[in-house]
């Protein structure tokens, strides 16, 4: 399987993305995993997170966003290349970040507003700053958006773990 086809399989288009996140997210079987690693750095220590390719570094222009699901099919996430360096960003200029898009208030999918540089929840308007680790700017969530831990392997941008608890889960890997 080429890297490109892997990316396509894991990255959801926007319609799928909303479908996944607005319905009951269980039951999407067979999420492809490239491999299962030992516990990722910074992740919940008892869980084993998969390593998953999310994007090609060379294709990530500033402003690019790529929806995907991680660490399982019920956990929609968004990879962003921001116009500025971000806390815990990866890549040469530290601009690449990814977050679970399930709002940590009531689980509605947040969307990225490039103009304001923030992720906004449509249900109760919690807003999050992707350049500051997904921290809550204002709103009713009680934790930052879970950050998908990324690493660069050559031209590959890989998801390797999650920092924070994803909405609806009692552990990130069920």
């Amino acid at each position: 399987m080429s890297n490109e086809s892997k990316r396509t399989r894991h990255a959801l288009n926007r319609r799928d993305f909303l479908k996944v996140s607005s319905g009951c997210m269980a039951g999407v079987a067979g999420v492809p995993m490239l491999s299962v690693s030992s516990p990722a750095l910074g992740a919940t220590p008892t869980s084993a997170y998969p390593v998953m390719e999310v994007a090609r570094l060379s294709e990530l222009k500033p402003g690019t966003t790529i929806p995907f699901a991680y660490p399982g099919p019920s956990s929609p996430a968004l990879l962003m290349r921001l116009p500025e360096a971000a806390r815990d960003g990866v890549g040469k200029d530290s601009t690449i970040v990814a977050f679970s898009i399930l709002c940590t208030h009531k689980g509605c999918p947040v969307s990225y507003k490039a103009e304001q540089g923030m992720l906004i929840c449509p249900c109760h308007w919690s807003t999050f700053d992707p350049a500051k680790g997904g921290d809550l700017i204002i709103g009713q969530a009680s934790s930052s958006l879970p950050r998908i831990e990324l690493r660069i392997e050559g031209d590959k941008v890989q998801a390797v773990g999650v920092e924070g608890l994803i909405y609806g889960h009692h552990t990130n890997i069920l």
Binding site: C24, S74, S75, G107, A141, S143, Y167, G168, H169, L174
Partner: peptide, 18 residues
């Protein structure tokens, strides 16, 4: 049933700060 994720809005979720 917490073997599956709780759904948005209708679900019961213990956020870490809770």
């Amino acid at each position: 049933d917490f073997t599956r994720p709780q759904p948005p809005m209708a679900g019961e979720w213990i956020a870490p700060n809770m």
